[in-house]
Nucleic acid binder design. Structure first.
Length: 307
DNA sequence: CGGGTTTGACCTGCGC
DNA sequence: GCGCAGGTCAAACCCG
């Protein structure tokens, strides 16, 4: 079942080639969900999405010349007519919180809580790879077991700057040219030594004004806070992005999220998430707060809610 | 001097 | 098996 929908603004077409439904969440966003499959995608100016299931009967969507394709344990954002993987996605914090908002048990995939068996190591140097000489234990371990993917999620943001402020401190550890794109992809790692969160930042080759940010993992610590006074209370991998005046963000107001939850979303409960323990401090915290506004609440400082 | 960035090399996964 | 592309490392460099 294919259908298309015109965005109210800019008349940008969002193509959808899956049996899913678009549910308006406000002027700039839609929920793209299929309750039966526990997949939810929040499309904003760019989009946030979360394949929430392990069985991954994911949707295939397209936006601005990109295809979102379910490829098993992750999603791929690929350029049309190209097999190149641009943004693989796992599960996202976004829906996690959103679901929590709905009183639905949020998926928990806390990378900080070492995933799958304590074998998961301090990622940092575990990849002693790069090694020329000796095979460090870490390397051996890495070879022994497949690299475990942390939950990921990505979103697109219209911004002039590549690296958006999100309340956390990041250290850039690499940059690579991306095939079929004139823009390089930057790799960042949370500066907190105990935190394994990483993020990739790249510009859309289709629309240079759009920055595609992909987060992997969840922070195991508090954000450093924002200059404008807000200390991020709960963990959110992207607790902000709103402090940069040069950026244009399209996060729907949390209120809207509450009010316009598409029925389908509520099905997104069981959502295990990549075989990780459910215990997740962050999620727990979120769901406990009566007035919690979910991740979007985390994202959007009160003063910014009604853009 | 400490912390962050740059950048070339290396490793790994995947498709052909 | 090979080549390509993505991802990571780490030395060199930069900056406050």
């Amino acid at each position: 079942m294919d259908y298309h929908k015109e965005r109210p603004e800019e008349n940008r077409e969002i193509g959808c080639t899956a049996d899913l439904t678009w549910t308006p969440l406000g002027a700039d966003s839609y929920f793209f969900g299929d309750g039966d499959r526990d997949n939810t995608i929040l499309c904003e100016f760019g989009w946030n999405f979360q394949p929430e299931e392990d069985d991954n009967l994911g949707p295939t969507a397209s936006y601005s010349g990109l295809d979102l394709v379910d490829v098993g344990d992750s999603f791929q954002l690929t350029e049309k007519k190209s097999s190149q993987t641009a943004v693989p996605i796992g599960s996202s914090l976004l829906s996690s919180s959103l679901l929590a908002d709905k009183g639905v048990e949020a998926p928990t995939s806390n990378p900080s809580v070492s995933s799958s068996s304590g074998s998961e190591d301090p990622p940092e140097k575990s990849t002693g790879s790069d090694g020329k000489p000796p095979e460090t234990p870490g390397k051996a371990k890495k070879k022994a077991q497949k690299r475990i993917r942390q939950p990921r999620f990505a979103f697109m943001t219209k911004s002039e700057v590549d690296h958006l402020e999100d309340g956390y401190r990041w250290r850039k550890y690499g940059q690579k040219a991306v095939k079929n794109s004139p823009y390089p992809r930057s790799y960042y790692r949370c500066t907190n030594s105990k935190c394994t969160v990483k993020k990739r930042v790249e510009r859309s080759s289709e629309d240079p004004t759009i920055v595609i940010t992909t987060y992997e993992g969840q922070h195991c610590h508090h954000a450093v806070g924002f200059p404008r006074g807000g200390i991020i209370s709960h963990e959110s991998a992207f607790a902000g992005h709103l402090t940069n005046p040069a950026s244009q963000f399209y996060y729907p107001a949390a209120v809207q999220v509450h009010q316009q939850v598409p029925p389908s979303i509520t099905h997104s409960s069981q959502v295990p998430t990549i075989g990780e323990p459910r215990v997740q401090p962050e999620a727990a915290t979120s769901s406990q707060l009566p007035t919690d506004e979910g991740l979007l609440g985390d994202l959007v400082p009160p003063g910014m809610r009604n853009k």
